[in-house]
Design a protein around this nucleic acid. Structure first.
Length: 432
RNA sequence: GGUCCCGUGGUGUAGCCUGGUUUAACAUGCCACCCUGUCAAGGUGGAGAUCGCCGGUUCAAAUCCGGUCGGGACCGCCA
């Protein structure tokens, strides 16, 4: 007999079926017990009468893996409208050890630290399953939308010979008889690939050796990157970003209604993507909060929260593009606004008060690119491969990077980005 | 790297300020028994913690002080 998923049972009343899954919980009465089986599709309850089948479960704890053959019986009192009766049980994987915390309660109780220490066990909780199903949808929808826009998916190396932006915050790794680094971002490679495919995207991990102790940073995160050529301005990039973000949100709405309800996700459906320049943003903070931020070359987290509130109030949007950041605060490849070289064609997308995306137009002229590197004291020597792409003709181009864990964290209003990361890597955590 | 907060049975908390009636409390989980439809099942009972660790103050420390280890929040930095 082949396996039936629990979600299919309501359509199989009167049939004898075989289900397999984990013992989620068991509630006992004098003459019978309710055994709840959990599989990837949901849960079903099995009615166990007193007898050898119940005896077979003696001493077994929750999470034991069972195969159960039984009759599907219509039952109004059952949560899914049917029960499985007259079961014949095979224990596929017995568990005799009690788990570190409860998986069969509606809310997960352990603190984040305890949870993460037992992630292989804890991730089975229905709320975590739902969380990472939504993540899966985010990634799928990102890919599907961009493929539909004629983008090509690429996969670039994560072991690199030079730090992407000449920064210090890279992890060094031994590479045979040399030193190498873990890529901080696919930035340079995706730009190179614009010369090949025009439009590329990548779903890959980025590594940052920064010792940040915050609820929104990881030392390894999954970056949703994109780069595209033949643009007129950064606006073209921003338009694609708004499109793909909307598509991702729509996909969750369509594909994960159960998860949205369970996690109480408030989706930013039908939102606009208002824009404000960096300067205007600072002016706004002066006007609304009386704080003069004009001497600052960047926005603080508090500034971003305040601008996010403004966007919500004035434009009814959870999103806000902040554009034209000071050129000095941006990397060497950022494209200075020809009319105002102190500011660059770069943007951040703020989502619910947090930086979700950074992007912009890049310098595509070879001479200008080398000059920009030298002006910042970046030695062009290690970037030979990168520069080669520009020596042989690079169209006007730009792109962005979305932090996937951060997106999901803001979507479901998580307190900490580690809640939306399967196995987070931070300063103190390398296992599991 | 800076500032601030928290470590009490497996898990989550109360107790700490104002040291001593505390055999360290409650919920949940576990074990046993009771209960004919539970669905965060219910009831009764039981086991389970030398209060992160080290030192100090004191007649007396979970409680006060110092150090240390672990965790968290915010800032810097970023996605």
């Amino acid at each position: 007999m082949s396996r039936t998923l629990t979600a299919e049972l309501p359509a199989l009343v009167g049939k004898r079926v075989l289900i397999e899954g984990w013992m989620h919980t068991m509630r006992s009465f004098p003459d019978f017990s309710f055994l709840v089986i959990r599989d990837r599709s949901g849960q079903a309850q099995v009615i166990l009468e007193e007898g050898p089948e119940l005896q077979r479960l003696r001493g077994l704890q929750n999470e034991s893996v069972l195969r159960i053959e039984g009759d599907v019986v219509a039952e109004e009192r059952s949560p899914i409208g049917v029960d499985v009766r007259n079961p014949s049980i095979t224990v596929l994987a017995p568990v005799t050890e009690v788990g570190p915390f409860e998986l069969n309660k509606k809310v997960l109780k352990p603190s984040l630290d305890v949870f993460l220490n037992h992630a292989p066990y804890g991730l089975r909780h229905p709320s975590k399953v739902a969380t990472f199903r939504v993540m899966s949808t985010l990634l799928s929808a990102y890919r599907e939308f961009l493929v539909g826009q004629d983008f090509t998916e690429i996969s670039t190396p994560k072991i690199v010979g030079a730090a992407t932006e000449g920064g210090a915050n890279v992890f060094a790794v031994e590479y045979f008889d040399r030193h190498a680094y873990l890529a901080q971002s696919p930035q340079l490679y995706k730009q190179i690939m614009v010369g090949v495919f025009e439009r590329v995207f990548e779903v890959g991990h980025a590594f940052r050796a920064e010792e940040h102790y915050t609820s929104r940073h990881l030392n390894e995160y999954c970056s949703l990157d994109l780069e595209m050529g033949f643009i007129r301005s950064q606006q073209d990039v921003m338009d694609v970003l708004a499109g793909v973000i909307s598509a991702m949100v729509d996909a969750i709405h369509e594909r994960n209604p159960r998860e949205v309800e369970m996690l109480k996700i408030e989706l930013p459906l039908g939102h606009s993507f208002p824009e404000i320049t960096f300067r205007a943003g600072q002016q706004l903070i002066l006007d609304r909060y009386g704080e003069n931020r004009f001497h600052e070359p960047d926005l603080s987290p508090q500034d971003e929260r305040r601008l996010g509130e403004w966007a919500k109030e004035e434009h009814g949007s959870d999103f806000l593009f902040v554009t034209h950041y000071p050129t000095v605060k941006r990397p060497f490849y950022a494209y200075p606004d020809p009319d105002d070289p102190e500011h660059s064609e770069t943007f951040d997308l703020i989502f619910r008060g947090v930086e979700l995306v950074t992007g912009g137009r890049r310098i595509n002229d070879y001479e200008q690119l080398v000059a920009s590197m030298e002006a910042r004291g970046v030695d062009p020597q290690p970037f030979g491969g990168f520069l080669e792409a520009f020596r042989y003709g690079m169209p006007p181009e730009g792109g962005f990077a979305v932090g996937s864990e951060r997106f999901l964290a803001r979507l479901m209003n998580a307190d900490n980005i580690r809640e939306t990361t399967l196995f987070p890597r931070d300063v103190g955590r390398l296992t599991p």
